[in-house]
Write a protein that binds this DNA or RNA. Structure first.
Lengths: 154, 154
DNA sequence: CACAATTAAATTGTGCACAATTTAATTTAT
DNA sequence: ATAAATTAAATTGTGCACAATTTAATTGTG
């Protein structure tokens, strides 16, 4: 109000970036809530689902390799992978060639779960309810944003 | 590859929406990592910072009111607010008119902290490093997305 | 008025996320 | 070959996030 479009003050700028952070934070939580009922039949949490997606794409990875794909460290992954092992979806075995590494591979039921998971993204896409190009563009913007943030935070 | 732009199969669509979810998830975590060093001097976590932003905008709110602004429930807020109280940034008092409610208000040092926080969004905006209209557009898209997700998940 | 239903916080329990440290194996540079 | 440095997981501890339950106060209804 009373300020032209081309004279963004420092305050405007600050406020805007705050809103972006909060919008991101809120959208992520809303997404997680939307995923919950879709993942419930598989008895997976969203982070567990991400790990399964990674393994469905490339099986038999080390904890480190899974971590680099999802930007998570062993402090997060070790207990998560133990839960997946307890659920008989994966097995964790020390690499005999390099005993520091633990290789994670799918069990038969881990591979079988993929079938049950196939319907999920479609339902979620319906929930998003936007044209494909919009989804692509938004995804790309978020990926760029992440790259910038990573560059800042290391 | 070998598929025209206008023939998105069900699989494409599924894959795309998966990527959007993951991009959102990854961008949020990258944001949190970028915030950490900026919030460290204030000794606040990002969720604590969000609560302080809410209170700086409108002081003396009930736990419920804070929760509706941030989409968080008492299970999350009660321990967080107790930590802010321990840090002497807020005080929690039962409402004498309705003893079920707890009103949260800033202390003098809670109000004073705002000065130290003022520099943060600017640094973050620099980290984002994009033109204002792009930030506005992205924020709007995320807000819309959240609204759709909330509509689905209740 | 009494009592059922509702509401606001708090509590309990599970599961990330991440910093910091520890343990053990491997690599590198003497 | 051996000591130092590096690497991969695991562990420890803090702080969300959220479902489910509990407690206590208030409101609504017969």
């Amino acid at each position: 109000m009373g300020r032209s479009e081309n004279s963004n003050t420092a305050e405007d700028l600050l406020q805007l970036s705050q809103q972006l952070c909060f919008a991101l934070y809120a959208a992520t939580h809303a997404f997680n809530r939307a995923y919950k009922p879709l993942l419930a039949p598989l008895e997976l949490t969203y982070p567990q689902y991400l790990v399964m997606l990674v393994l469905w794409e490339a099986d038999d990875l080390t904890v480190k390799e899974i971590g680099s794909r999802l930007q998570l460290d062993s402090g997060t992954l070790t207990p998560l992978l133990k839960r997946l092992e307890t659920a008989r979806l994966v097995e964790r075995v020390r690499d005999s060639a390099d005993e520091r590494q633990v290789r994670v591979h799918l069990t038969e039921s881990g591979r079988a779960l993929r079938k049950k998971a196939e319907g999920i993204p479609k339902k979620l896409a319906q929930a998003i309810g936007r044209p494909i190009p919009d989804i692509v563009a938004l995804r790309q913007q978020l990926t760029d944003l992440r790259a910038r943030m990573d560059a800042v935070a290391g």
